[in-house]
């Protein structure tokens, strides 16, 4: 991957991410989140992880985002709220600063560590190897996740079925 592609993809990703957080309309946020995810799928692809990139596109940019959008449309929030942000603006500044502190804390020493092989050093794995590892080395985690998803499906249905306070019947 050439630096040019990486930098451009990175800048786009950061911009989309910021737009997700800062857009007033939640639907716009959802749109930018989908875009950011597609952008990230490209980065994955560039990192020689084509399967993950595909899953990213299908699961995230596809399924999860559709779910978000559907829920948003279900709510049908017509009247827009005065502010997208909660609480005291001063405190929000502090929140921003603390997020920045986190970012700075990790990145401050990042580039001072010794030489690491540049991009392109990675070995490409085919999907077959991925599948073999998944069903041998990580079989237990895989099964456990299957169970988790089942539980979540049941739980989500159970949660949504409960009657809201304003409904009488």
């Amino acid at each position: 991957m050439s630096p040019t592609i990486f930098y451009s993809l990175s800048i786009v990703l950061v911009v989309f991410s910021l737009l997700v957080v800062l857009c007033k309309n939640p639907l716009h946020s959802a749109l930018f989140l989908a875009l950011a995810m597609i952008d990230l799928a490209f980065i994955f692809f560039e990192l020689k992880a084509p399967f993950i990139a595909a899953v990213q596109l299908m699961v995230y940019a596809g399924a999860v985002m559709v779910m978000f959008v559907m829920v948003l449309m279900l709510f049908d929030l017509k009247e827009d709220e005065e502010s997208a942000f909660s609480g005291n603006p001063v405190i929000n500044v502090f929140k921003f600063l603390s997020a920045g502190l986190l970012c700075w804390a990790i990145s401050s020493k990042l580039f001072s560590y010794g030489d690491v092989a540049g991009l392109g050093a990675g070995k490409e794995f085919d999907i077959k190897a991925l599948g073999t590892t998944l069903y041998t080395k990580y079989i237990f985690a895989f099964e456990a996740l299957g169970l988790l998803l089942l539980l979540i499906a049941v739980g989500a249905v159970a949660l949504s079925r409960t009657k809201g306070g304003t409904h009488d019947s």
Binding site: K95, S98, A99, L101, L102, W104, A105, I106, S108, K109
Partner: peptide, 16 residues
């Protein structure tokens, strides 16, 4: 916020 602040300060302390 408390959680994030705490982890940020801790990380800052360690990393720097």
């Amino acid at each position: 916020f408390y959680m994030l602040l705490g982890s940020a300060v801790t990380l800052f302390y360690i990393m720097t």
